[in-house]
Simulated assay, not measured.
Amino acid sequence: MIRVKKFGVLQTAKVVAIIYVLVSLIIIMPFALLGSMLTEEFFPEFADFGAAALLVIPIMYGIIGFIFTAIGCVVYNLIASFTGGIEIEMETATK
């Protein structure tokens, strides 16, 4: 049995933030491009929103993911100090 006693707050938050940015880029890109094409035709004054969304939304998503992951790690570390942490049973794979 392996026990997770503590998470490294900054390292875990950095990794999760980068994952959030990459995933949000994959998700937002088709919507931003479609929105840009539609607004050019119907609302030309908002035509640049699609390009701005490709930059702003993933960055904001990463920042928010970093903050909430850091808070979650601190809360877990606090609770794990009283309870001992999460136990995980693992085995080595045989070929």
Rank of each mutant, 00 (worst) to 15 (best):
K14R: 14
K14E: 04
V15M: 08
V15H: 05
V15W: 07
V15I: 14
V16K: 04
A17E: 06
A17L: 03
A17Y: 03
A17N: 06
I18Y: 10
I18W: 10
I19K: 10
I19W: 09
I19N: 01
Y20H: 06
Y20W: 11
V21F: 15
L22D: 01
V23R: 00
V23S: 03
L25W: 09
L25G: 12
L25V: 10
L25F: 12
I26F: 14
I26N: 01
I26Q: 01
I27F: 12
I27N: 01
I27E: 02
I28V: 11
I28W: 03
I28Y: 01
M29W: 14
P30E: 03
P30G: 06
P30M: 03
P30L: 02
F31K: 02
F31C: 02
A32K: 05
A32H: 03
L33P: 00
L34V: 09
L34E: 01
L34M: 13
L34S: 10
G35K: 02
G35Q: 06
S36F: 06
S36H: 08
S36T: 11
S36Q: 13
M37D: 05
M37Y: 10
M37G: 11
L38N: 07
T39V: 01
T39H: 03
T39N: 13
T39D: 05
E40P: 00
E40C: 00
E40W: 04
E40L: 09
E40D: 07
E40S: 12
E41A: 12
F42V: 12
F43W: 13
P44D: 05
P44H: 05
P44L: 01
E45Q: 15
E45C: 00
E45Y: 09
F46W: 14
A47P: 03
A47V: 13
D48P: 00
D48Q: 08
D48E: 11
F49K: 02
F49L: 14
G50Y: 03
G50I: 07
A51W: 12
A51M: 07
A51T: 15
A51D: 12
A52G: 13
A52L: 12
A52D: 08
A52I: 10
A52T: 12
A53Q: 06
A53H: 04
A53C: 05
A53Y: 09
A53G: 05
L54P: 02
L54N: 04
L54F: 06
L55A: 10
L55Y: 14
L55R: 09
V56T: 13
V56P: 01
V56Y: 09
V56A: 12
I57R: 02
I57K: 01
I57N: 02
I57C: 02
P58A: 07
P58C: 07
P58G: 08
P58I: 05
P58T: 07
P58S: 07
I59D: 02
I59E: 01
I59L: 15
M60Q: 09
M60H: 00
M60V: 15
M60Y: 11
M60P: 00
Y61R: 10
Y61H: 13
G62Q: 03
G62S: 05
G62I: 03
G62D: 04
G62T: 02
I64S: 09
I64R: 02
I64H: 04
G65I: 11
G65P: 08
